[in-house]
């Protein structure tokens, strides 16, 4: 077994999915807070980044996350029609549709990326979305498509 293969096998064994969730400040971040207030457990692999609106999520952020070794990226915003800034989530939806189709063309499985609408009153929905997303990513295994090995420490 070569060194490369050995490290790959070892990595697989101790692999835990790394998931970045971009949550808009007004709805989804509030939904995540409500999940907390209601003590609704979801996997700790999900790490949330607060953005003012889902339309603040630059496709570059998502590419960067994959480059740095994330296994899945989810963008959460207000339900259509409920955006705090009126139209932000529509921009996000269009941009992400474009980006995700490009990612899928590059070989990143489409289940690794998602856009979900979670309102500030939907703590239970936040948990359900995260549970199912983590389950999808766990099934797919580590993402190796866009990972920049130069970014790895070892």
């Amino acid at each position: 077994m070569s060194v490369m293969e050995k490290t790959a096998a070892a990595r697989q064994a101790e692999w835990k999915p790394k998931i970045i969730a971009f949550c808009c400040n007004w709805c989804s971040y509030g939904g995540a807070d409500l999940a907390g207030t209601n003590r609704l457990s979801y996997p700790a692999n999900v790490k949330i980044i607060r953005v003012p609106c889902s339309c603040r999520v630059n496709p570059m952020f998502i590419l960067r996350a994959f480059q740095k070794g994330a296994d899945g990226v989810i963008v959460c915003g207000c339900h259509p029609g409920d955006c705090h800034y009126s139209t932000g989530n529509y921009h996000a939806r269009r941009r992400m549709t474009m980006l995700f189709s490009m990612l899928s063309f590059l070989g990143v499985e489409s289940a690794r990326t998602r856009v979900e609408w979670v309102s500030a009153a939907e703590g239970a929905r936040f948990k359900a979305v995260m549970d199912s997303f983590v389950e999808d990513i766990t099934r797919l295994g580590p993402n190796e498509r866009l990972e920049d090995l130069r970014c790895k420490e070892n």
């Binding site: 970045i20 790490k47 003012p52 603040r56 630059n58 570059m60 952020f61 960067r64 740095k68």
Partner: peptide, 19 residues
């Protein structure tokens, strides 16, 4: 760019969380 949520700041958060 957006003050308080700059591209650099969010990228830095992404980097830190992916470590």
């Amino acid at each position: 760019d957006l003050r308080g949520f700059t591209n650099q700041e969010i990228m830095a958060e992404v980097d830190a969380l992916c470590l």
